[in-house]
């Protein structure tokens, strides 16, 4: 460990990953990278909650299948979502039958679960672990905001919760993208209270983690082919870029945001995508494949999470945020 950054051994790698999405995601620019898409928000189920669970299960099953491993080979399933009591993750685990640990880091759960999974593998507690996250536009709106058919006007700083799920099998292997570094986030806030402006709320946490990552590893922005934040979108991402510039890091062209890599500009998603699935579908659907092929040599995924609850913001509290960064490398 150096500072807040953990380094995993060279044999801790991603064996396979999979991403699934809903109807809007399949029409978006991420569409062609998804392993499976559902053309209906209910995914053939009778509730949105079950639909979200089906998406997570599909992503997990597909990732295991692609890894060539059997369920029995996998020692632990780590998953998280946005719903109260993490019901998507735990209900999906019941069906899966792999020993399970639920995690919560809001939208940072993708890289939180990857960090924990890689740690268990690296420590030798298990040979293989599967990590996964999900979010669903309707279940998230229902829980955090208003009914989905409510006609209240949202500001342009609002974001669109991504419907989908992503999963990855991480384990001891000689090939596949190496999971090299994980920089653990600190919880912080800068006075933002507006739940329709998550990008502004989360940008400082992303910046803090990225700076720590550079300090701990001695790397600089140009050492990466791509650095993506999870879901800062068109408001938070330029804020993060400016804060990093002020701190002496010129992020350059290769600094992007997963929330801006999912939908077409003509799809009305306000500032861009958000939710656990935002970083997951982009990382596990597109980026991991490109790292495996060598199109990208080194990437850093900085998954950002807003740790609010409807109660906390109704009580007038600021939105505390976190960001976890993981580097994936082709070596």
């Amino acid at each position: 460990m150096i500072g807040r950054t953990w380094e995993f051994g060279p044999d801790t790698r991603v064996l396979a990953s999979a991403a699934v999405g809903g109807p809007m995601e399949s029409e978006g620019i991420i569409g062609k990278h998804l392993d499976h898409t559902f053309d209906d928000l209910y995914a053939g189920e009778d509730t949105w909650e079950k639909a979200e669970r089906k998406m997570l299960s599909t992503a997990v099953d597909t990732a295991i299948q692609k890894s060539g491993k059997q369920q029995a080979d996998i020692g632990v399933y780590l998953a998280g979502d946005l719903l109260n009591q993490n019901i998507t993750a735990s209900f999906s685990a019941q069906k899966l039958g792999i020993p399970f640990m639920g995690i919560y880091g809001a939208c940072s759960s993708s890289m939180l679960s990857m960090t924990i999974g890689a740690s268990f593998v690296n420590a030798g507690y298990t040979q293989y672990a599967i990590v996964g996250v999900s979010s669903h536009n309707c279940t998230a709106e229902k829980q955090y905001r208003y009914p989905t058919e409510y006609g209240g006007q949202k500001p342009d700083t609002a974001q669109w919760t991504v419907t989908g799920a992503g999963a990855a099998v991480v384990g001891k292997a000689n090939t596949g993208p190496r999971v090299r570094y994980a920089t653990i986030g600190k919880v912080m806030e800068r006075g933002v209270k507006n739940p329709f402006d998550m990008g502004s709320a989360m940008a400082p946490a992303a910046v803090d983690t990225i700076i720590s990552h550079f300090q701990d590893t001695g790397r600089k922005p140009a050492d990466y082919d791509l650095i993506v934040t999870g879901d800062l979108a068109s408001v938070g991402h330029p804020i993060a870029r400016e804060l990093l510039f002020q701190a002496g890091y010129d992020m350059g062209e290769q600094f992007s945001d997963c929330g801006l890599m999912i939908y077409n500009p003509d799809q009305e998603t306000f500032a861009g995508g958000s939710g656990c699935a935002s970083s997951a579908v982009v990382t596990y659907g597109k980026l991991m494949q490109e790292v495996a092929k060598g199109k990208l040599k080194r990437i850093l995924v900085v998954a950002t999470g807003a740790l609010l609850s409807p109660v906390s913001y109704q009580q007038g509290e600021n939105i505390p945020c976190i960001a976890h960064a993981v580097s994936f490398e082709n070596d």
Binding site: D156, T157, G191, S200, V235, G236, L243
Partner: peptide, 20 residues
């Protein structure tokens, strides 16, 4: 100091927020 920091951040963030 905290209030000052929050105000400074809000000023920076405001530049990137679309105008209502």
């Amino acid at each position: 100091k905290q209030v000052q920091q929050e105000q400074a951040y809000d000023q920076l963030a405001q530049k990137h927020r679309p105008k209502p």
